[in-house]
Computed example of a mutant assay.
Amino acid sequence: MSRGTKLILDLGASWGEGWSMEEEKSATTLTLLEPSAHRLVFQKEKRRGKAVTLVGPFSLSEDDAQKTLSSLKKSLACGGAYKEGWMEFQGDIAPKVRVNLERLGFAFKNSK
């Protein structure tokens, strides 16, 4: 192709027929809850042979969740991430996570 010529790719679909390349995103709204209104649960998984502790689901804003995660990682001396409303922590540390989250005012489904 030489410079200045346009490549025309018409495949038979017209943009005026309501067809588009963009995916329609479902409208999911996140209701933000205060810490005492949460009912959190634990899940344990193995990833690459290592134990991972999952706690959630959280209904927090992204900023609040990141701040909470950062303070928990510092107090627990472990790594972690926040993905899709769940906090992931490296290791099998559910009792320690529970104590720290209860100190911050969060509640769990099955309180012991």
Rank of each mutant, 00 (worst) to 15 (best):
I93D: 06
T31L: 13
F108H: 03
F106M: 00
K109V: 15
S26H: 05
L54P: 01
A94D: 08
S70H: 11
G56Q: 04
K46V: 12
A51P: 06
L72V: 04
E88S: 10
V41R: 13
F42S: 06
F89C: 02
E23L: 13
D64A: 14
S36P: 02
M1T: 11
K25T: 11
L76R: 04
K67E: 14
L72G: 04
A13I: 13
W19G: 15
E62F: 11
R48I: 03
L32H: 05
V52C: 02
T29L: 12
E62K: 11
H38A: 08
E22V: 12
D64H: 05
T53I: 03
E84M: 12
K73D: 01
R47A: 08
R103D: 01
M21N: 12
V97T: 02
F58T: 07
S2C: 08
A81I: 06
K44G: 08
K44M: 12
D63F: 04
H38T: 03
K46Q: 11
N100Q: 12
E62R: 13
H38W: 00
L101C: 01
I8S: 13
K109S: 10
P57S: 09
L69Y: 08
G105K: 02
M87S: 05
P95K: 02
K73Y: 02
T31R: 14
L101N: 03
A51T: 09
K96E: 09
C78D: 00
G80N: 06
F106E: 00
P95E: 03
G79K: 13
K112P: 15
K46G: 01
G91V: 02
E62P: 07
T68S: 07
S71C: 06
Q66H: 11
L9V: 15
L32P: 01
L33S: 00
K46A: 10
V55C: 02
S2Y: 12
K74P: 03
G49T: 00
V97Q: 05
S59W: 09
G56F: 06
G49L: 07
E24M: 09
T31D: 10
V52R: 07
F89Y: 01
E34P: 05
D64G: 07
K25F: 08
S36A: 13
V99A: 09
A77N: 15
K112S: 14
E22R: 14
S111W: 00
T5A: 08
S36Y: 03
E62T: 11
L33D: 03
W86K: 15
G85C: 03
G79E: 14
G85T: 09
R3L: 15
L69R: 05
S70L: 11
F58S: 07
E17R: 10
A51Q: 08
L7Q: 13
V55N: 05
K46T: 11
